[in-house]
Amino acid sequence: MILAADLDEIDCRLLTLLQHDGRISNQELAAQVGLSPSPCLRRVKRLEDLGYIRRYVALADPVRLGLGLLAYISVRLDKSSRAGHEAISGFAQAVQDWPEVIQCYAMSGDMDYLLRIQVSDLAAFSHFAMETLMRHPAVVDIRSSFALLSIKETTELPVQPGQGASS
């Protein structure tokens, strides 16, 4: 397995450019990293095959789609009973079916999960929180925070040669 520590400067530049613009042409990409098109294409294919590039997506504008409310919800689950343990195992699966949940992370600390929710407005948030989230049998407590202003939002990861996990 090749790890980030094994990526060279050109691999890192390819990843950086593709994260910024996944629709860049191979010719333009090759020119920007100083390769001819064929070797550039082979390197990109290698990065895809090794899993450094998971997929290509279009990033939709939530406000234009009428989803202007961004909220984060910390969730605490009931872990005290056998029934609670069964409900917990179903929580991660249930989250997959909730379209309002854009991201979900298992967390350390006093809360078990952190959800990123994108909805149209406070009424939609309230409906999701009360009718979906709080009705899940494992959920015992939630804490909500609302984004007031986006200061920085990116999907681009910092990529540098020699960084990352080692074998």
Rank of each mutant, 00 (worst) to 15 (best):
A124Y: 06
A129T: 02
V57C: 14
A147Y: 04
L70N: 10
G34E: 11
I88P: 00
A31E: 15
G66E: 03
A58H: 15
V33E: 07
R46K: 05
E100C: 05
Q19K: 00
K45A: 11
F128N: 00
E9D: 15
F146P: 07
P137K: 00
L15I: 08
D21H: 00
S81H: 01
L149P: 01
P39M: 05
T155P: 00
R76D: 06
D121M: 11
P99Y: 06
D61A: 11
Q118T: 05
V44F: 00
F146C: 10
S145A: 15
G164K: 05
A87M: 04
L35P: 08
L70S: 07
Y72Q: 05
L59S: 14
M107F: 02
G66H: 05
A87Y: 04
F125H: 06
D8M: 10
D112Y: 06
A147N: 09
D141F: 06
D141A: 14
D97E: 13
R135I: 00
A138S: 15
G34L: 07
Q93E: 14
R76P: 01
F146Y: 14
I142Y: 12
H20Y: 09
Q160S: 10
R43L: 07
L133S: 00
R23N: 09
I53Q: 01
P158F: 03
A4F: 04
Q160Y: 09
V75Y: 01
R23C: 04
Y56E: 09
Q118L: 02
L14H: 00
I73W: 00
S81I: 00
M134E: 11
Y56K: 14
A124L: 11
D78N: 04
M111V: 08
P37R: 13
R43Y: 04
V44L: 10
S150G: 15
D121E: 07
S120H: 12
L114P: 12
L15R: 10
G51T: 07
A31G: 14
L50H: 11
V101C: 15
L115K: 03
